[in-house]
């Protein structure tokens, strides 16, 4: 199945990737090739087959409601690009 350049642009926006115009054609071609590979699946009869989200047929293990964490803000923010007064900074958010 082919994917158009316009669709690739839309997907790139959803994924927050700024594909420059000059790279769009190459990306589109690559994605088309991958989708061609993947399209083999459409021919498989999967009637009644339960989707498998996970390799283990197990149920989830839960944790007790206990506070185990203490403040490590300074350590964690040491790797942050921009912080002030303990806050992470981003360009102005318009709601």
């Amino acid at each position: 199945m082919a994917i158009s350049e316009a669709e690739v642009k839309k997907v790139a926006r959803l994924a927050r990737l700024a594909v420059p115009d000059e790279r769009l054609a190459a990306y589109t071609q690559n994605l088309c090739n991958i989708l061609d590979l993947v399209d083999q699946l459409s021919a498989v009869d999967t009637t009644g087959v339960e989707p498998m989200a996970h390799p283990l047929e197990m149920m989830q293990r839960l944790r007790e409601d206990v506070v185990t964490e203490t403040d490590h803000r300074e350590k964690y923010q040491a790797v942050a690009p921009e912080v002030e007064d303990g806050l992470y900074l981003v360009p102005k958010v318009i709601e």
Partner: peptide
């Protein structure tokens, strides 16, 4: 991008769900 496409509205069943079935 492929993953985003496969999960996006209108393609989820054809790609992601189908793949999960074949995975089984």
């Amino acid at each position: 991008m492929i993953g985003t496409y496969a999960l996006s509205a209108g393609y989820y069943d054809a790609y992601y769900l189908k793949a999960q079935q074949v995975r089984r």
